[in-house]
Amino acid sequence: MAIGDIIVPKWFFGFDSAIYIFVAIVGFLITYYSYKTYSITAKKQHLFLYWGFKIISVGFLLLAITRIYSYGIVLPTCTDVCTLSTSGSAFTITDFGYWIYFAASLLAYLMFILTSMAEKIKLPIMFILPVWFAAFPYFHITSIFLMSFVVFNSILNFLKNKNAATLLVLLAFVFISIFHLSLIVIPINQTVYVFAHLFLLLGFLSFLFMLVKVLKVKVGK
């Protein structure tokens, strides 16, 4: 599947992979605590949360690994700006990394939607799957579409609870949405690629702060 060329400033090479690894670590941490929570409550929503973070973490980890491999090939050939070409006819390692990451992210966002919907609506997942699969080539647009539901639910949750943890989760989802929104315009301006990744980093930093805050609670507080 052709993904298109990804234009990256040379100085930023490596930083993006480091961000993906950080994202995966934070994701796996939330995965662990979501599973712990599920083992106590046996609630479907906690299971969706667990799978959502697990899938997205695996996606980012694979993307980081394949990216590091791709750098070895591309880096010696570029000057100020490097192009990761994924539009060739051959299915490369770069394509593989992106394909897994795209599929993992979209599936994870679906899980996040189901996390907030599971109790209210019994929506069979197979009714949603063909929608994202059909829209697969337009990854970032599909992501923004899915994330808009997640952000909307997070806004409602924040307005209902008005505490730091709900605000941090809301900010995290907003930053991830900005990350996708920014990446739509990379072909126009490659500097946006850097900003987009900073938003991704901010998103998962928010998740990390939320987790630290949650784990610091005391009984009866």
Partner: peptide
């Protein structure tokens, strides 16, 4: 267990999951 349950409540609330 009480402490763990408090954490479960906090994490659930952060993601809008009611217990």
């Amino acid at each position: 267990f009480l402490l763990e349950f408090r954490k479960v409540e906090e994490l659930s609330s952060a993601f809008g999951i009611g217990l």
